[in-house]
Each structure stands twice: as C-alpha cells, then as structure tokens.
Design a protein around this nucleic acid. Structure first.
Lengths: 179, 179
DNA sequence: TCCTTCATGTAACTAGTTACATGATTAT
DNA sequence: ATAATCATGTAACTAGTTACATGAAGGA
C-alpha cells in the first residue's frame, strides 16, 4: 500500500493517542491544516485503508446506541510513521494564494485598489497568526517540542507576512513611483 | 463561463503581450508558479474555453509547416482581469508542505534526524530564493512595479524561512531541552 | 547525427472538495 | 424546543498531475 502525506497526517494524529475520524479532523483543523489540509472525504476511506494494511487498528467505542470507532496506531504503523519522518527527502512547498496572484497582476489597476488588497491580505495573516496563537498554550503544555516549534514557526511566518504587506501598503500610499 | 484562479493566470500572462500556450507555461514556471502553479493539461483546454467566451482571441502564428497559435487578450478579457484584481475578496492561502509536516511529527525520532531534516529545508528555501533572484533583474527592468514587488516578497519570504530553519537547527544541535 | 528546445495536445489518473444524508447527544 | 456538537459516511464533482504521442527547428 502506497502512503501519501495525507496518510501520514492520519497516522501522525493517531501517534498522540487513539482517536475517531471525527477527532482527527478536529485536531487537523487547528494544527496540520496550515500546511496540509484534509477533509472527511479523505479521512474515513484512509482509515479503512490503513486498517486493512495493519498500520492502524479499529476499536468500537460506541456509547449506547451512538456508534463510534476509535483507531490507534499499531507498532508497524508507528514504525512507518517514524521512518517517513526520518527520511529527509527533498519535496516541494506548494503555495496557492489567489490574493498574491492578484497582487502580481495589479499593475493595471488603480493604486488605491492595490492598497486595499494589501490591507485585506495584512488582516488575513494577522488573523491566521491570532488563530494559531490561541492554541499555542495547548502545544506548549505538552511535551511535544517540535509540535510547539512548528506552531511558533506558523505564528512568526504569518506575522512576518502581515508586516510585509503592511509596509508595502504604506509605501504605496505615500506615493512612491521610483524604487 | 466560470473563471477560476487558473483562468486568471492565463489571462494575466496574456496581459503582458500575446503568447502561445507554450510561452504561458514558460512564463508561469518562473513567476506565478510560486503561488499558483499550472500545467499544460490545464493551459490548452483553458485557452480554448477563454477563446470561446471571447476573453482571448487566437491568431495563427505558424512558421512554415510548424504550427503555432498565439493568443491575445480582448478588451473584455482585460476588463475581466482588472475587475478580478480590483475585487479584494478574502480568500485562503493554501500551503502544502510535506517536510513541514514531518517536522510537526518529529518528536518521536532521534534529534539528529530532525536536524538533518531542518538542514534540507533550509537549503530548499535558499534555493528557491536564489531561483527567484535569478530573474529579478528581468522583473526590475520592466515597468511592472507590482510584479517586481511580488518577486521581492518571494525572495524575502524564502530567505526568512531558510533563516528560521537554520536557527532552529542550530538551537537543537547545541542541545536545548528547555525553552 | 543527436540532443535540446519549441509546440500542441490528450487520456488516464490521483487528489481533494462539497454537498448531502443520517441520527444521537448535549447544552441553552 | 432547538441549536450546536458529535459522529460517520458517500456520491458527485472539480481540479490538477503525469505520462505519453507527435513532430519540426535549431544548435552542438
């Protein structure tokens, strides 16, 4: 069975303890979603595939009539996860940002529209940083150092972006034609 | 007809002058590819769709027996592009980075593996920045200010990332347990 | 001669999103 | 009551990649 990054998001989420598909989604939405988003449409089929390959194991955790399945990593699953982490294969960062695309093509529109665009972008990154900061204490409290470092990276990155866009907006506003 | 960001990459590329599908791909690979990548499998069908909606217009530019079609923006195409740019709708940045994902799950692997991972990441971002810098003079030479600013943003961003990863690698190496 | 670049295109595939359906439990 | 959250799942769709085919032109 072929594992892709999405499989590892699932495996990695389970490395912190047994979880349901629903739990995995909740966790991913406040953590890995900033560098690898996943949806229910991927999670449930993936859990069954991983289960079939013996990398995770399903356990019934229904409460009364409400059915619920929690999965946990098997030894082989944990081993696969750690092997993947330790292999430093150079892979590409992929960024898709429609607003940055707009900025790239903004030479033909009025300057004030560009400034407004930059202000929205600035706010966007401030908000992403704020969202990350909200569950920073959670990450700090646990003994997961790298998890915490990645969170710090995300906060610093988005704040850096916000500042950059803010500076450019200010430069454009006080009218610069020459560089 | 519905236009998506990919359509605007095509439209935007043509806003700099008439181009073939092949030309669009070459241009996108050194510019927009850093925040919105596109492939031939999208370009050629897209050009026909845009042509059918009258946003671009095809012209035969064959040289001898070698056939070639160049497209140029129509007035409506240019208008659509500028309207899209001027509309500052808040859209999400999407990042997919397998290496950052590894870093997030790196608490269970030997520290030296994490340091190695960070060093590869650092190199990766240095290289992206260097690649961007290579065609920076090209962007500066033209009177496309925003195009140049976005290029500068990319260079600064990837250098910032390289530095951050480098610092973390250094911190980890001289053994830090407490923060 | 042979390799690279120019040039266009598509079929098959892989990945990912969205919308929907279902229904229990818990908090207001 | 009723809204929100927990919980699982899939079908249909949209997007994007990869691999391949074809072949001319130009340079080494």
């Amino acid at each position: 069975m072929e594992l892709n990054p999405t499989s590892y998001v699932v495996l990695g989420s389970l490395s912190f303890g047994p979880r349901s598909g629903y739990d995995i989604k909740q966790l991913a939405d406040i953590s890995t979603r900033h560098f690898w988003a996943i949806s229910y449409g991927q999670i449930y089929p993936e859990l069954r595939r991983l289960s079939a390959s013996g990398l995770v194991s399903a356990e019934d955790a229904s409460r009364g009539t409400r059915h619920r399945t929690v999965y946990h990593l098997t030894d082989r699953g944990r081993q696969m996860l750690n092997e993947w982490v330790s292999e430093p294969a150079l892979t590409k960062v992929e960024i898709r940002d429609e607003m940055l695309l707009k900025l790239f093509f903004a030479d033909a529109v009025p300057r004030k529209d560009t400034v407004r665009l930059l202000e929205v972008m600035r706010r966007r990154h401030r908000e992403i940083a704020a969202g990350l900061r909200e569950n920073e204490p959670m990450a700090a409290a646990q003994q997961h150092e790298m998890k915490y470092e990645v969170m710090r990276f995300g906060i610093a990155l988005h704040e850096w972006c916000a500042d950059w866009y803010g500076k450019l907006a200010a430069d454009l506003e006080r009218g610069r034609g020459a560089r």
